Simulated scan of single mutants.
Amino acid sequence: MLSLLYSALLSLTLASGVYSDGKNISVSTQVFASTGSNVTLPCRLNGDSDIMPFGTIGIRVKWSRMPEDETLEEEPFLVVLGLHTKSFGEFNGRAVMQGADVNDASLVIMDAVASDSGRYRCEVDKGMEDVVYEVSLQVEEAGLLNGVVFPYSPRLGRYNLNFHDAEQACVDQDAVVASFDQLFQAWRGGFDWCNAGWLIDGTVQYPVTKPREPCGGSGSNAGVRTYGQRDKSNSRYDVFCFVSQLEGVFFWLEQPERLTFDEAVQACADNGAEIAKVGHMYAAWKLHGYDRCDAGWLADSSVRYPISRPRKNCSPTQAAVRFLGFPDKKQKLYGVYCFKPQ
């Protein structure tokens, strides 16, 4: 009897595999993971619900893998209808619903492998309300996830980015929004930051290695602390960005005088380069050991300098990218860091 139900579920899924004109992708996001890890692909029901969408009669969740050839049909591998669940194909036994709260239809793929990389689609059908998520998953060998996670807030100040602004802020710095795995790896490496920021799965979290009163209390445990899922349009936080490599040359431009921001931009251009971005500085600092005790303009009009060898008057206690804020662009107090793409 149950096998007949599963057969019916599969037939229903395959029949509805192609979108009608009235069904649009409501969310599109990207997720990174390392081989051997458990990775979560986000999918959430809109609005509030007092019941689990995938545990209710009349509610259907379908997760599919999209073929590289767009002329081919999608490949459904997990369908939930009411209380019944069926997984099949290469994900049978490896893919489960997360169900973290009443609106959560996110998928957890266990023991990720490189061949899991690709595009995925989640459809939640709830009567008149349909939710469609499209997720791009990139699974890389664990060693290839080495990079640097860095916190970012705009000139407007702390907690001014919704999720979509956060994505663009990272792109503007030649980076991407970090995943939980990347933030967790950074935390294990000693990353400590008390301001909460967006991650690519739509959660808001922050890493604490030294518990203290402003960061959850001195009696709390070290760890990556989470605010959970937040409204991507209306909630505002900072963001954690991730950059994996430096595809060019990052350098301090030797100048006889200090520059305004506009003069800094022009000085780099005059030397066949562009003014460097925050992601360039973090990649040069973390991945190549770049060290200089001169504060310089960057493309977002912030002023920073990278210290790999802590010392007096530079960064006496720790290696870090030091941040001097967003000064008046007309001040002639700083030099400039440039970047020449390969």
Results as ranks from 00 to 15, higher is better:
K330W: 03
Q168F: 11
R309K: 15
T35P: 00
E74P: 03
L41P: 07
A320V: 14
F163I: 06
P207C: 08
T35R: 00
V96P: 07
R236E: 13
V18N: 15
E129R: 10
Q342P: 03
E134A: 07
K232Q: 06
V27N: 07
K86T: 15
C314W: 01
G127C: 06
A105D: 09
R121A: 04
F326Y: 15
T29D: 06
H84T: 15
P154F: 00
P306T: 01
V321F: 07
H280C: 07
F150K: 09
R188Q: 14
A295Q: 01
M1P: 14
F240G: 03
T13M: 04
K286W: 01
W252L: 14
V278G: 07
L145V: 02
E247H: 12
L259N: 00
H288R: 12
R119E: 10
G82K: 01
E254F: 04
F240W: 02
D238T: 07
N313V: 11
T35Q: 03
Q229F: 06
K62L: 12
L5N: 07
M110T: 11
R258T: 09
W187C: 05
Q331M: 11
G93S: 07
R94D: 08
R292D: 11
N103K: 08
V303D: 02
W252C: 14
F32S: 04
E123N: 08
F32Q: 05
V124S: 00
E129N: 11
S20W: 02
P316W: 14
F163C: 05
E134N: 08
A320G: 07
N38K: 04
D328C: 05
T13K: 02
S87Q: 13
D116I: 03
L9R: 01
E70Q: 11
Y159G: 10
